[in-house]
């Protein structure tokens, strides 16, 4: 039992610099704010033209049990939630009142997405990213690269020679590791469902041609319409899709090859978007975030190599030593 607990702690709670998590915070919050923030018009239109929720999501059921629908789910109420969430996002990005602002941003995002999905239409794109956002307030995501950190250093007497080493913590990696596990879980679940439900016929080429043709026509994507006519290419892409989805979890056990899976994930979702219009932008950000920040040694190594390319820069104290 003791050994299991030690292994659990070693996996989820290694002592690392808080810089990686801070980098992930900045990337994730910037993505949420500037790339895939929920549309206010869409929210208001749904609330105004529906007298009731069709399939209310848990957060909406919870809120609606406290606040009446006609008090909060109105143009004024939704506008207020929207702007409070956006303001919290700006604070979370710069790292001011970081934990609180991250919590408000995550809660506001859950509310807005949950509301949009309470009218008989649910999609997967934001789910894992929303969970990741909700983990950040419970981690030292503002301990580096934040105004909070700057103020803390000043209060601690930065001018009187206090340590300039980046803070270290044993709770700075678990949100990233959880994002990795959730992605692996989701990809595996998607892949195994294809094989269990569709069978081997899923890779016959006709299946992917049908799916791509349907999406490309309805979303007016010429590249998708062209791809749907390439039977052999669709066989190869179907096999590639199943292999990627079923084997992504291997990256959990073989960290050295994990970056290739993350790069594969980014390309996979860009490809899905360009050919079928699937807007999994959150998954692109999550894969990019894991590529850049999951392994502190790897990202520091990259930074070090980049710095070596720039003549005249002093060597970093925290640069990884050759093993």
């Amino acid at each position: 039992m003791r050994r299991w607990i030690d292994q659990w702690n070693a996996y989820w709670f290694p002592v690392t610099s808080t810089q990686n998590l801070a980098g992930a915070r900045i990337l994730a919050v910037a993505g949420q704010l500037f790339w895939f923030f929920p549309s206010l018009d869409h929210q208001i239109n749904l609330a105004a033209k529906n007298s009731h929720f069709v399939d209310p999501q848990p957060i909406i059921r919870a809120v609606a049990s406290i606040v009446p629908r006609d008090a909060l789910f109105t143009p004024a109420g939704l506008t207020a939630v929207y702007w409070v969430t956006a303001a919290a996002g700006v604070l979370a990005l710069i790292g001011l009142f970081t934990r609180t602002s991250l919590f408000v941003l995550a809660l506001g995002t859950w509310f807005l997405v949950g509301h949009a999905y309470s009218y008989a239409d649910v999609h997967h794109t934001q789910a894992l990213f929303a969970i990741f956002l909700m983990t950040l307030p419970f981690s030292p995501a503002g301990a580096s690269y934040s105004i909070d950190a700057l103020l803390r250093r000043r209060r601690a007497g930065g001018s009187s020679g206090a340590s300039t080493e980046p803070p270290r913590s044993d709770t700075a990696m678990w949100p990233l590791k959880l994002a990795h596990v959730l992605l692996a879980l989701a990809y595996f679940s998607t892949g195994i469902t294809k094989l269990l439900s569709g069978g081997v016929a899923w890779v016959n080429g006709y299946t992917l041609q049908n799916h791509i043709f349907n999406d490309a026509i309805n979303r007016d994507i010429p590249l998708g319409i062209w791809l749907a006519q390439q039977h052999t290419l669709c066989i190869l892409l179907a096999v590639g899709t199943i292999l990627f989805e079923m084997l992504f979890f291997v990256s959990l056990f073989l960290p050295r090859i994990a970056p290739y899976f993350f790069i594969g994930g980014i390309l996979f979702h860009i490809g899905l978007y360009l050919t079928s219009g699937h807007p999994f932008f959150e998954h692109i950000i999550m894969n990019l975030m894991l590529l850049l920040f999951l392994d502190p040694q790897r990202s520091l190594g990259w930074i070090n190599r980049l710095e070596q390319l720039v003549p005249g820069l002093p060597a970093r104290k925290d640069a990884p030593q050759p093993s």
Binding site: V113, S189, T190, S197, G198, W202, F213, I217, N218
Partner: peptide, 27 residues
Amino acid sequence: VAQTRWPFLAWAMYARSFPPGPIQVAQ
């Protein structure tokens, strides 16, 4: 398709397979 547990979802997407035959879409 009517899932009410967001953000905890079943990830069965595009699982249906199609046999050889006409590839059609209705608009």
